[in-house]
Amino acid sequence: MKVTIEENEETGKFTIKVKTEDGEEKTIEIPKENLEEILAKLPPNVEII
């Protein structure tokens, strides 16, 4: 699983794009305050880009 994290400076939010092993892609946008909480919940086999 690969996770790409991009900061949107205009909105102050982060866009998180997840690509699973089977090629499925999902995108979510979260507030900056929630980034550490989300990262802590990721499984250890995740590659963060």
Rank of each mutant, 00 (worst) to 15 (best):
D22N: 11
V46L: 07
P43V: 01
E37Q: 10
L39N: 00
P43A: 04
K13Y: 12
K19A: 09
L39M: 06
I38K: 00
K19R: 12
T27Y: 13
I49V: 08
T27G: 03
I49Y: 05
T20E: 08
E29W: 09
P44D: 11
T27E: 07
L35F: 05
I48G: 03
E9L: 14
E36R: 07
A40F: 04
L42D: 00
P31A: 13
K2P: 02
E24P: 04
V18W: 15
E21Q: 09
T4G: 02
T4M: 05
V18L: 13
E36G: 12
N45E: 08
D22G: 07
G12K: 05
K2Y: 10
T20K: 05
E47C: 11
N45M: 09
G12T: 04
I5W: 03
P44H: 12
M1A: 08
E9I: 14
E9C: 13
E33C: 07
N8V: 05
E9T: 13
E37W: 10
K26E: 10
I48W: 14
K32L: 07
E47Y: 05
N34C: 15
N45L: 05
E9V: 14
E25L: 09
M1C: 15
M1V: 09
D22P: 02
K17Q: 07
K13G: 15
V18D: 01
I30L: 06
E24C: 12
D22H: 08
E25T: 10
K17G: 04
E7D: 05
K17E: 05
L39D: 00
T4A: 01
A40Y: 04
F14S: 03
I49K: 02
E33A: 11
P43T: 05
M1P: 07
P44T: 07
E7P: 07
E6C: 13
K32I: 08
E6F: 15
E24S: 12
I30T: 04
G23C: 05
G23Q: 01
E7S: 08
E21Y: 04
P31Q: 12
K17T: 15
V18K: 00
K32D: 04
K19C: 13
F14L: 15
V46P: 02
I28A: 12
G23A: 03
E7C: 14
L42H: 00
T20A: 07
K32T: 06
D22C: 10
P44V: 10
T11M: 05
I30C: 09
T27L: 09
P31H: 12
L42S: 00
F14V: 13
L42C: 07
E33H: 08
I38F: 15
F14N: 03
N34Q: 15
V46S: 06
L35P: 00
K19N: 09
L42R: 01
E6H: 11
L39R: 00
I48D: 02
I30G: 02
P43N: 06
L39E: 00
E6V: 13
N45V: 04
E29G: 03
I49F: 06
M1G: 07
I49E: 09
K41Q: 14
F14E: 01
P43E: 07
T27K: 07
E24Y: 13
T11Y: 03
I16M: 06
E21R: 04
L39H: 02
I5V: 06
P44N: 06
N45C: 08
K2C: 14
K13P: 01
P44Q: 12
N8C: 07
E47D: 08
I49D: 04
V18Y: 14
D22T: 11
K26M: 14
N34S: 08
E36K: 12
V18T: 08
L35W: 06
T4Y: 15
E7W: 15
K17M: 10
E36A: 15
N8K: 04
E24T: 07
K41M: 13
V46K: 05
L35M: 07
G23M: 02
K17P: 01
F14Q: 00
V18R: 00
M1I: 14
E37H: 10
N8A: 04
N45F: 09
K41Y: 07
N45R: 06
P43C: 13
I5H: 00
I49W: 06
E36W: 14
T15H: 06
K26L: 15
K32S: 06
K17Y: 12
L35A: 02
L42G: 01
T20R: 04
L35G: 01
T4N: 04
T4K: 01
N34T: 08
T4E: 09
E36S: 09
P43I: 05
K2T: 14
K13T: 15
N34F: 14
E10V: 11
I30D: 01
E25S: 06
K26A: 11
E6R: 06
K26G: 04
T20N: 10
T15M: 07
K32A: 12
T15D: 03
T11I: 04
E9H: 14
L42E: 02
G23R: 01
K2D: 04
K41W: 11
K26N: 08
I38G: 00
E7G: 07
K13M: 14
T4V: 08
F14K: 01
I5M: 04
D22W: 09
N45H: 10
E33Q: 08
E7I: 14
P44C: 07
E21M: 05
I38P: 02
K32V: 07
F14C: 12
K26C: 15
I16S: 00
K41I: 11
N34G: 13
K2W: 15
E6P: 00
M1Y: 09
E24D: 10
K2E: 06
K17A: 08
I16K: 00
P43W: 13
I38T: 11
V18F: 15
K19I: 15
T20L: 11
I48Y: 09
K41F: 09
I49C: 08
V46N: 01
L35N: 00
N45G: 14
I48K: 02
E37M: 13
T15G: 01
M1Q: 04
K26H: 13
V18P: 00
E36F: 12
E25G: 02
E10P: 03
E10S: 12
E7M: 14
I28W: 14
K19V: 15
E7A: 10
T4L: 06
G23L: 03
E21T: 06
V3L: 07
E33L: 05
F14R: 00
E10R: 10
L39Q: 00
A40M: 11
I28S: 04
G12I: 01
M1H: 06
K13Q: 11
T4W: 15
P44M: 10
K19E: 14
G12E: 04
T4R: 01
K19H: 14
I5N: 02
T20W: 15
P31G: 12
V18C: 15
E36Q: 13
K41G: 11
I28L: 11
E37V: 07
L39A: 01
A40G: 11
G23E: 04
E37N: 05
E21D: 10
K17I: 14
T20C: 14
T15Q: 05
I38V: 12
G23F: 00
L39G: 01
T15Y: 09
T15I: 15
E9D: 10
I28P: 00
E25P: 02
E6Y: 15
